[in-house]
Design a binder for these strands. Structure first.
Lengths: 202, 202
DNA sequence: TAATCATTCGACCACTGGTCGAACGGCTGT
DNA sequence: ACAGCCGTTCGACCAGTGGTCGAATGATTA
C-alpha cells in the first residue's frame, strides 16, 4: 500500500466531508489510521501534502478537459461551451475550495488559481485558434486573449475573494459575454451560454 | 488617543519592517504597547484588524485617484490614460508590494487586491460611462466591464502571482488593448497607451 | 460615599504544525 | 543463530497561535 496516496486520500476525504477548517495534520493522521509522525516521513510539510493533493485532483480533470475538447467534430463555440460546462461541474471542487478559502491557506489558494490558469489557458487558446481558422473569431493573440478571459474566472468569480450575489454574477457573466463577443468579433449572441446556464439555475 | 488606529498602525509597522512572519496578535499588542486582551476589545478577530488595515492604507490613495480623474476637462480616453499612469506610479507601491508578495502575507495580499478592485472599479466605470456619453465607447454595463478590465490588472499582471517576462507582459497588454478597443467599440489605437509607456521603459 | 461601567490586562485555553528519540521488524553478512 | 543495520512507525512533546475570561482600574454619576 502506497502510504503517500493513503495520506492524500485521507486529506481529500476530510475536505470532501467539509471538514476544511478541522483538517489538521493530526486529523489527517487519524483518518489515515497512522501516527502523526509518519506523515512527516512522507511529506516535509502540510503544504506539501496539499500540493500533491491539488496536483492529484486537477491532473485528471485537466486531462479530461483536453479529451473533451479535442475528440469531437464540433466548432470552436461549441467547444468553448463544452469546456465551460465541464469547468463548472468539474474544475470547481467545493470540497477543496472550503479549504482553499480559509484565511490561513491564502498562499496555496493563490498557487491553485495560478495553476488552473496556467493549465487551462493553452486549452482555451487552442479553442480560440480553432475559431479563427473556422472564421468564427478574429483574434490576433489567442494565448494572451485566453489568459485575459481566464483571469476573470480565476479572480473576479472566485467565491473566496469576492462574495457576489447571484444577480451580480449574472450581470458580470453577461458583460463578459458581451465583451468577448465584440473582442473576438464572434457572432452576436454566440457566447450567451456563459450566462444562460447560470440564469436557469437561479 | 484612538486605540483602534494605534493597533492598526502597530500592525502596519510590523508589516513594513518585514516582520510578516512574526506579526502575531501578541506581537501587535507589544508593538502597540497595550495588552493582548485589549486588542480584542477593539477588534473581534485578527482578520478584522487586517481588513481595517487594508482599508486604511488604500483609502487615501483611491481618494487621490478620484480627485485626479474628476477635476480635469478631459475626455474619457485621456482620463483612463491618466488613471493608468497614476495606478502605475502610486497604487503599486514597491515597498508595500515586497511584503504583500511574501508567502506568509498571501492573505492580506488577496484582500488588498480585492480592495483595490472594489475601490477602483466604480472610478473606471465612471470613466467608461463618460466615454459612452462622449460617443467614444459603446458599453451596456460600465460597472461590470470595468470589473473585467481590472481583473486583469489585479490577477494576471500581479508580479506576486505570476512572473512574466517583459516581453510577455507587453504581449498581454497589447491583447488587453485590442480586446477592450473592440469590446468598447473604442477608436482604433485609442488604448495604445496601455502598452506604449511600458514598451518605452523596457 | 457608593455604584456603575467602559476599559485594560496577562494568565490561561485548546489547538496548531512540526520534531524527536525510542522502538519495531525484516533484512543482511558472518 | 546472532548481531548489526536500516527503513519505518509512533505519540509525547515543543514553541507558538488566535482567542477567552475574570479580576482590577479609574473615571463618572447618583
Amino acid at each position: 500500500m502506497d502510504k503517500r496516496n493513503l495520506i492524500i486520500e485521507a486529506m481529500y476525504k476530510l475536505l470532501k466531508e467539509d471538514k476544511g477548517a478541522f483538517c489538521s495534520v493530526s486529523e489527517i493522521a487519524k483518518e489515515a489510521g497512522i501516527g502523526k509522525g509518519s506523515i512527516y516521513y512522507y511529506f516535509k510539510s502540510k503544504d506539501e501534502i496539499f500540493d500533491a493533493l491539488v496536483e492529484h485532483v486537477y491532473y485528471e480533470k485537466i486531462r479530461h478537459c483536453k479529451e473533451v475538447i479535442s475528440c469531437s467534430h464540433i466548432n470552436a463555440l461549441e467547444k468553448l461551451q463544452l469546456l465551460f460546462s465541464v469547468y463548472g461541474q468539474y474544475i470547481i471542487d467545493p470540497s477543496i475550495d472550503s479549504y482553499l478559502h480559509l484565511q490561513q491557506n491564502a498562499a496555496i489558494h493563490q498557487k491553485s488559481l495560478a495553476q488552473i490558469h496556467n493549465l487551462l489557458s493553452p486549452i482555451v487558446a487552442e479553442i480560440f485558434n480553432n475559431g479563427v481558422n473556422e472564421n468564427l473569431f478574429i483574434c490576433e493573440s489567442p494565448q494572451e486573449t485566453a489568459e485575459l478571459f481566464l483571469s476573470s474566472f480565476c479572480f473576479l468569480f472566485d467565491p473566496g475573494i469576492f462574495s457576489w450575489s447571484d444577480n451580480q454574477i449574472l450581470k458580470k457573466l453577461k458583460a463578459l459575454a458581451d465583451l468577448f463577443e465584440s473582442g473576438l468579433s464572434a457572432p452576436k449572441g454566440s457566447l450567451q451560454f456563459l450566462y444562460q446556464s447560470f440564469q436557469k439555475q437561479i
